[in-house]
């Protein structure tokens, strides 16, 4: 935890920043969760709620930016404190993006669920969302506990998310080839999958920022790329069914 400063108001300001980050994180987690639920259950009401909730995150980010700038100007922070403040700015930006991606998923609910789709279409997406949300939750838990020793799990899970995304991409392509009527919902679902995959990436970014805040070093640069969708092509002939 942070060391104690002579001016206790300074401690409180730093604490306030991390509390706001946690609140934003919780809000973003909830938004993504609800967006997926809205998509799977074809619930436009819930989707509307998610879209409205995004404002809270935008506000949160602006507030953290303002507060951070004021602290830097007033307290001339050094070392850990400075990293803590700069980290807060970066993390809040990442969380705000997560919220935007969740909102984008929610926006597609009406288009995807227009005409009832089979549940098998959503099963893969749910599994992908579970992975990404677990990633986000664990990263934010590390932000709370500051135990960066075993932050390696983030990279592992990122690989899993990428592999799952690649698999989902293939699956959706197959559905489109089977029946042209699937193209509209499947294209939207592809974007949803991409959004969720991006959420995983933002979570990884946050993990790197936390590592930097706590240790003062950057995390090792190698970041394996498991996303192979850039190489997937359709077979030229439609396979005989």
């Amino acid at each position: 935890m942070q060391s104690v400063h002579i001016v206790s108001a300074y401690d409180e300001e730093l604490k306030y920043l991390s509390k706001r980050i946690a609140a934003m994180g919780g809000h973003a987690e909830r938004m993504v969760e609800q967006a997926i639920t809205a998509l799977v259950n074809a619930d436009p009401g819930l989707a509307q709620k998610v879209i409205r909730d995004d404002v809270v995150l935008d506000e949160g980010q602006r507030e953290i930016d303002d507060k951070a700038i004021v602290i830097i100007a007033k307290r001339q922070p050094m070392a850990t404190d400075l990293r803590e403040i700069v980290g807060a700015i970066r993390i809040s930006a990442d969380i705000e993006r997560v919220g935007d991606l969740g909102k984008n998923v929610a926006k597609r609910v009406v288009a995807v669920t227009d005409g009832r789709q089979p549940t098998s279409l959503f099963r893969g997406l749910e599994a992908l969302a579970d992975l990404a949300l677990t990633q986000l939750k664990e990263v934010l838990d590390v932000y709370a506990s500051r135990s960066v020793e075993n932050i390696g799990f983030v990279r592992d899970r990122d690989d899993q998310i990428d592999a799952m995304y690649t698999s989902l991409f293939r699956e959706l392509l197959t559905y489109m080839m089977e029946d042209p009527r699937n193209i509209t919902p499947c294209t939207h679902l592809l974007f949803c999958a991409k959004n969720i995959e991006r959420i995983g990436d933002h979570a990884t970014n946050i993990a790197e920022t936390i590592y930097y805040i706590v240790t003062g070093d950057q995390m090792a640069a190698e970041r394996p790329k498991g996303d192979k969708t850039d190489k997937i092509v359709l077979p030229s002939a439609v396979p005989a069914k």
Partner: peptide
């Protein structure tokens, strides 16, 4: 020593 609201982030818990 940990701040509670950092661990329980859900809006209703906050």
């Amino acid at each position: 020593g940990m701040t509670l609201s950092l661990k329980f982030r859900a809006p209703e818990m906050q």
